[in-house]
């Protein structure tokens, strides 16, 4: 079973994402900001990170930068999932090693399609 770390400061978003991802047969666990996510990745590297941008303590882009410099940190697929939907943000995320990018609001189909595109499904 593939593992997915959901990083978002909104409990509602984490809950919705968890439900969608569990239906897609992912082992889901959560972090509420970038720092928590980073600590989590140090002990266990997930197959995929679903990552919000704006969070307290450490935001998504700083997490991504830190993750990619960790040993084995280039392995996880990183899919942003954020309300930031302008080209500048998207481009920055891609440049720093994000694999895909979901603009909120999202639905289960978008998650499924994006995860399929990056080779995590089917």
């Amino acid at each position: 079973m593939k593992s997915c770390l959901v990083v978002d400061d909104s409990r509602v978003v984490r809950m919705v994402a968890r439900r969608v991802l569990q239906d897609l047969a992912f082992d889901v666990y959560e972090a509420t900001n970038g720092q928590e996510a980073l600590i989590s990745c140090l002990s266990r590297m997930p197959d995929v990170v679903l990552l919000d941008w704006n969070m307290p303590v450490m935001n998504g882009i700083d997490f991504l930068r830190a993750l990619r410099s960790l040993p084995g940190g280039d392995e996880p697929v990183v899919v942003f999932c954020t309300t930031e939907s302008d080209v500048a943000h998207i481009q920055q995320a891609i440049d720093l090693g994000a694999n895909e990018y979901i603009m909120k609001p999202f639905d289960s189909e978008i998650i499924e399609l994006k995860f399929t595109q990056v080779g995590l499904l089917g």
Partner: peptide
């Protein structure tokens, strides 16, 4: 644009 289009091609 989020249905099937890779983000790199969108940009």
């Amino acid at each position: 644009v989020q249905r099937g289009l890779p983000i790199t091609l969108l940009v």
